[in-house]
Design a protein around this nucleic acid. Sequence first.
RNA 1: GGCUCCUUGGCCGAGUGGUUAGGCGCCGGUCUGCAAAACCGUUUACGGCGGUUCAAAUCCGCCAGGAGCCUCCA
Length: 489
Amino acid sequence: MQTVRIYNTITRKKEDFIPINPPHVGMYVCGPTVYGEAHLGHARPSITFDILFRLLNHIGYSVRYVRNITDVGHLENDADDGEDKIAKKARLDQVEPMEIVQQYTLNYHECMRFLNVLPPSIEPRASGHIIEQQEYVQRILDAGFAYESNGSVYFDVEKYNKSHNYGMLSGRNIEDMLSNTRSLDGQDEKHGPLDFALWKKAKPEHIMQWNSKWSKGFPGWHLECSAMGEKYLGKEFDIHGGGMDLMFPHHECEIAQSTAANGSSAVRYWIHNNMITINGQKMGKSLGNFITLQELFTGKHELLQQAYDPMTIRFFILQAHYRSTLDFSNEALQSAEKGMQRLFAGFNTILELPTHDTSTFDVQNLKNACYEALLDDLNTPILISHLFVALKSIQNIAAGTLTITEHDKKELHSLFSVFLCDLLGLLPPEAKSEEHTELLNATISMLLDERVEAKQNKNFAKSDAIRDKLTQLGVRIKDLKDGYEFEIQ
RNA sequence: GGCUCCUUGGCCGAGUGGUUAGGCGCCGGUCUGCAAAACCGUUUACGGCGGUUCAAAUCCGCCAGGAGCCUCCA
């Protein structure tokens, strides 16, 4: 089996990926909090870990991929009177919290399907695992790393840090953090300012609350991932992923929780994708500078010059390495759109290439380079650059300056199919013609036949009028040596 | 303020010591009645200053600018 090298946040190095129980791989990725529409930022981790999921399966692993839906809103702020985000949205819209959850879960799923993100093996919800989370809290209490205070249960960070290292993932140390904590209201329940809630007592008016031995309340912010990760992947599993913004405190707390409960930090490889920025600034819900995926698909947003196909978004994201920030702009998206179209056009011409007895084009070498790129910490931009170089060769073969054997031709076609479609998960532009009736195609052909005739009669006024009108209507005309092709946009 | 990270040509974006990354754009060409599309070719680079080295975009130091996290966030 080929070896994947992956950057592990916890060691800050690229490491060979060695699973605990090959060929099985357990992978947990933090999914969305469903209290708003999926935006461009959500597409990044989904696509990044979709690539990893596809790659690991492709090279022979059997991956159980767990991606949660957070449907118990975390509190909007740390103070006692903080409101649950989902509950707040429900109150504003005057609906049940679960209606909010349902609406945005469906929206997220739909966007993921458009982006050709494979569904995970298991998609657990926090609200469906309250019991598991309560049991997890109890285990941390039993281990002595948590305390009950006024119906809530908190994790004792300072005590934990005496025997373990709180901050090992994010590279912080507790003294720095203690000297930097801001004083917030409603912290008197906590013994220390860094302590975080495992179970939180709810006020009577709080909509989402469950019975527990401590109080009627709801689980703490970081608990669901620890509880659900363990339930479906075991006490120790291979990969945990998510956005970089979750590194602290979310993932740090997860490590502390599982170490307190089980004595081990649960996760072998921590993988974090970087942010998508807009004008150099993080795109985020709380900053209000985000563009939803639906808006991108339809072009309905003041910053968008046009609608973008989901595959364009996917290609755009894959043209940057997942650990780099990626800056949004219309120009970048349009350049991605055009490049991807050329790549697929090249893919289509492979089958039509003339063959020879010998190849002057090294398919095997290309294949190795493609694998090398992807296996080296998911370097999709390098992989794509190899495909573009291959595209040039395809065109040279078509032009006769390079030759290829029948066997290599098939190899080349399968290479494009594997890397472009199966691994990068890009789908060819849809055959739009199916959406249109034959009648429409026949009608356009008739007009274009008219135009050919007009051109032959040197009636250019008429031929240009037909061309301009059809172009205006969204028919892209390609004049060929003998005849024409057209495409309905 | 603390921790982490970034600064590459018109734009996007790879690259960790020595060989053209790649895409888009621009420009030139082929094709065309003219265009468009397509194809061919071409161009500009490593924030600043110093150091290590035969050799640095790549390592080290300082400076400047920017970002993320430190409150929920992908």
